[in-house]
Design a binder for these strands. Structure first.
Length: 263
DNA sequence: ACCTCATGAGTAG
DNA sequence: TACTCCTGAGGTA
């Protein structure tokens, strides 16, 4: 489930199981073999997540950069369950834990110092603690200066990193904003609300491991199938206004929203 | 055995 | 805007 919250969880998993340890890295599928050799048997200094990108820093000044894209997935197992299932691009393991990576858009080893260029292109990440509100300020500045639709801006990783198609739809619904509204037409208070709500929702996402955006569903045990207001609810009655949730295509991605609530 | 879909993003034109 | 890449799951036959 690759929006930012799940990448944070992956970084946490790597730090819990592998940080400070020498880990084995190989590529059962073969496509990551030569890169894997460069970090195999090295100590994982730290795992970091920025937006949808995961960075694994090793003790030889190399970083493994991983981006799941739309298909990528992690599978964690006990090390004795080590049969290869499907196309395992990369396997990270010790005697105590094992993580398999399949279908990523990127899984590459790069000099740690060269990662800075990429990191600088990423917009503020709502999961990043922001006591001085510098990230919030950066987000507000970018949105308020853009004529692009806010529905596009939230998906743009240089504007805000970690938001994907689910959070985009849900955050706009909760703010009551029409996704087609140009960023520059929004009130400062609206842009601020979008940021603050992103922080709030992604924090829930990191804790729950699921994008629960209807807070009244949080009390329920497990993950409710009615956890979202509009995502994948086209044709159904809006939980709030009883109008009909609609779907349209925006920049080749499905956009779900409620014309009754968002205007 | 097929077909379609998915929480993404780079590139060409 | 269209095409490309990555992989598996679920539905239909």
């Amino acid at each position: 489930m690759p929006e930012g919250h799940s990448v944070q969880r992956t970084a946490n998993w790597f730090n819990e199981h592998f940080k400070g340890q020498k880990i084995k890295v190989d590529s059962p599928q073969g496509r990551f073999s030569s890169d894997a050799k460069r970090i195999n048997n090295r100590v994982l200094v730290k795992a970091r997540a920025i937006g949808k990108q995961l960075f694994l820093d090793f003790d030889n000044d190399l970083t493994c950069r991983i981006h799941l894209g739309i298909y990528g997935k992690w599978r964690y197992s006990e090390p004795f369950h080590n049969e290869i299932v499907g196309e395992v691009r990369a396997r990270f393991y010790t005697k105590a834990a094992l993580a398999d990576l399949r279908g990523p858009t990127y899984c590459q080893v790069v000099a740690t110092e060269d990662m800075v260029h990429l990191e600088n292109k990423l917009g503020p990440d709502p999961t990043n603690p922001d006591p001085r509100k510098l990230n919030q300020k950066r987000f507000i500045e970018k949105v308020s200066k853009s004529k692009s639709a806010i529905g596009l801006l939230l998906m743009n990783q240089s504007v805000i990193s970690g938001i994907g198609n689910v959070y985009r739809a849900e955050i706009l619904f909760r703010a009551g904003i029409d996704p087609h509204t140009p960023g520059s037409n929004l009130l400062m208070s609206q842009i601020t609300e979008l940021w603050v709500d992103s922080v709030k929702l992604m924090k829930i996402g990191v804790q729950k491991g699921a994008m629960v955006t209807r807070e009244d569903q949080l009390a329920k045990r497990g993950i409710s199938s009615e956890r979202n207001y509009v995502y994948k609810r086209e044709g159904f009655k809006c939980f709030r206004c009883k109008g009909t949730v609609v779907i349209e295509v925006m920049a080749s991605r499905k956009l779900y929203w409620c014309p009754g609530c968002q205007n």
